[in-house]
């Protein structure tokens, strides 16, 4: 098992190299001269040229990329053109807020959607199933920012229960986490339902009933454990999505996370910050994928057996 994890970690290296290469080059294609941006609007051409020299912008792009990667290995992703601060440090200072929001919203999504998915599967084709599926459809179709605004209107403006923006303790986490979480819940509910419907028809469910297990035990112990693999897959995908891209919710709630960091700096054409943050996000995604694959093995001994063989 450890061998498998090590192997996967090593496999991450080329993946990160390729993504960083693509990101670095595409960012380089974006319009505008960074030197002019840094030097300021009133700088003379000579001053701009000097800045260009300092930033090493006259080197060929491949050389710049190699230098950039060399820095990355030492944890140096360059300096922001706009804030003049270290990109890596800025990213790491924003990371806790994003992790907090991501895990809280995924947790809410899981707590809502797995019971709901099981419930709709067990009551397939009844009105309960239909009601659950309408809820899920609503969750998918409802724009995140709109739900966020509605929640703000109801819970912070009218009821005054939770703050409408900022990040200050548990209370301020509730509304953004619910907003993002309900959006995620829809897909997880549908996956849980279809996976459970598959499992419910299996022979071993009948074996469990014939043993005298209660319906509850049959569904949760024998059913859910077998239905989990697709559910975990979707949760993993959702988690990596919110880790990198809950921009809308972060904007609505002024949540100081990575999504907003990237968004803000794209509009300011702050290439080093955007490049660095996206590369860090892709590393995060790789890690989440690895964790998901390891969690598979924990729930399914057949998958574990495959890992050990490799």
């Amino acid at each position: 098992m450890w061998k498998y994890i090590l192997k996967r970690l090593i496999q991450m290296i080329p993946a990160i190299l390729i993504t960083s290469f693509i990101i670095y080059f595409s960012m380089n294609l974006t319009s505008g001269d960074p030197a002019m941006l840094v030097a300021g609007e009133k700088a003379t051409p000579a001053q701009v040229e000097q800045v260009r020299q300092e930033l090493g912008l006259n080197d060929p792009i491949v050389i710049r990329y190699l230098k950039y990667m060399g820095g990355m290995i030492r944890g140096d992703l360059g300096t922001s053109y706009v804030t003049k601060q270290d990109v890596f440090k800025t990213f790491m200072s924003r990371l806790p807020a994003t992790l907090e929001l991501s895990f809280a919203s995924v947790l809410i999504a899981v707590l809502v959607s797995i019971p709901l998915g099981i419930y709709t599967a067990v009551n397939q084709n009844s009105w309960k199933d239909t009601a659950g599926m309408i809820f899920a459809l609503f969750g998918v179709s409802m724009p995140n920012f709109w739900l966020g605004l509605m929640l703000i209107v109801l819970f912070s403006l009218n009821l005054g229960w939770f703050p409408s923006s900022g990040r200050a303790g548990f209370q301020s986490l509730v509304l953004p986490a619910v907003t993002v979480g309900l959006g995620l819940a829809a897909l997880i509910t549908r996956t849980t339902r279809s996976s459970m419907l598959d499992v419910i028809r299996q022979d071993y469910m009948r074996t469990a009933r014939a043993k005298g297990a209660s319906e509850r035990r049959v569904i949760y112990k024998h059913g859910l454990n077998n239905a989990l693999i697709p559910i975990i897959t979707v949760i993993g995908l959702q988690l990596s999505n919110v880790l990198t891209g809950s921009v809308l919710a972060e904007t609505v709630f002024s949540w100081p996370g990575i999504g907003r960091l990237i968004f803000d700096h794209i509009s300011k054409r702050d290439t080093p910050m955007v490049t660095g943050a996206i590369i860090m996000c892709s590393i995060l995604m790789c890690l989440v994928n690895l964790v998901v694959d390891i969690v598979y093995a924990f729930f399914d001994p057949r998958i574990k057996a495959q890992y050990v063989q490799k």
């Binding site: 022979d203 071993y204 074996t207 043993k211 024998h222 001994p301």
Partner: peptide
């Protein structure tokens, strides 16, 4: 009733199923 039925299933009457390849739960020892 359901509860008493559960007490009888497995204890007073048990069943061996046709296909052993699918009758066992794959994720339990």
């Amino acid at each position: 009733p359901a509860r008493e039925l559960q007490n009888v299933r497995g204890k007073d009457v048990a069943m061996i199923f046709q296909d052993p390849m699918t009758a066992l739960n794959p994720v339990m020892t």
